[in-house]
C-alpha cells in the first residue's frame, strides 16, 4: 500500500512541476507536510546533496524519500512515479511534432523558442558562475569589489577553457574529473 502511495504522490509532483530545476521543490515540501516521509530539514540537505551529486533534484528527492520509506523497491517506485507523467506527455507531444514537422506553424514557433531557450540557459549559467567563481558573502562583508573574485577558481576556469578548446575531442568527463582532483588538492571548498 505504501508503494502505491509513494508512486501516486511523486506522480503528482512530476505532473505539476513545470520548468525544471527547483520547480519540484514546492511539491516536495507539500509531500513532507502531508506524509512525514521526510522533514523540511531533509529537503534542505537534499538540495545540498543534489548540488554535489549528478542528477536532477526531483529524482534525487524521490529516490531518497522512497528509500527511507520502503527500501530499494520504494526508491525505484517513487522515482518511476515522478518520471511517469513526463514519459506520457512528452511521447504524446513528440508524436504530434512528428506529424506536423513540415508545418510552417511549428517551424515558426521554434524559430522563436530556440533563442528563448538559449537565453534561459545563459541566465541559469550566470547563477552557476556566481556560485562557482564569485564570493558574494566576502564582497558584502568588506564592500571591496576585489574580494568578490575567487582567484584560484577563476584561474582554473581560464585554464579549463583553453584546455577544452585544445583537446575538444576528449570527453567532458575527463575535465570534470580533473577539476574534482584540483578542487580536493587546493581545498577549493574551503573545507
Amino acid at each position: 500500500m505504501i508503494y502505491l502511495q509513494l508512486f501516486f504522490e511523486f506522480f503528482k509532483a512530476g505532473l505539476f512541476a513545470i520548468g525544471g530545476g527547483l520547480a519540484t521543490l514546492p511539491f516536495l515540501s507539500d509531500i513532507a507536510d502531508k506524509t512525514g516521509w521526510f522533514t523540511h530539514g531533509d529537503l534542505a540537505d537534499m538540495i545540498a546533496i543534489s548540488e554535489s551529486t549528478p542528477g536532477p533534484i526531483g529524482v534525487n528527492m524521490a529516490t531518497y524519500a522512497g528509500f527511507n520509506t520502503g527500501g530499494i523497491p520504494g526508491a525505484v517506485i517513487a522515482t518511476l512515479g515522478l518520471i511517469c507523467p513526463s514519459i506520457i506527455i512528452i511521447i504524446a507531444i513528440a508524436k504530434i511534432l512528428d506529424k506536423f514537422r513540415k508545418s510552417p506553424l511549428v517551424n515558426h514557433t521554434f524559430y522563436g523558442l530556440r533563442p528563448a531557450s538559449v537565453a534561459l540557459i545563459s541566465a541559469a549559467g550566470i547563477m552557476v558562475v556566481k556560485m562557482a567563481l564569485l564570493d558574494m558573502d566576502a564582497f558584502h562583508a568588506s564592500g571591496n569589489i576585489l574580494d568578490m573574485i575567487k582567484y584560484k577558481e577563476v584561474i582554473l576556469a581560464v585554464a579549463l577553457f583553453f584546455l577544452i578548446k585544445k583537446f575538444n575531442k576528449l570527453h567532458p568527463a575527463v575535465f570534470l574529473a580533473g577539476s574534482l582532483a584540483v578542487g580536493i588538492i587546493l581545498r577549493l571548498g574551503g573545507a
Partner: peptide
C-alpha cells in the same frame, strides 16, 4: 572541495 572544483568545470 571536490564539488567546488567540479562547479568551475
Amino acid at each position: 572541495n571536490a564539488f567546488a572544483g567540479i562547479r568551475v568545470c
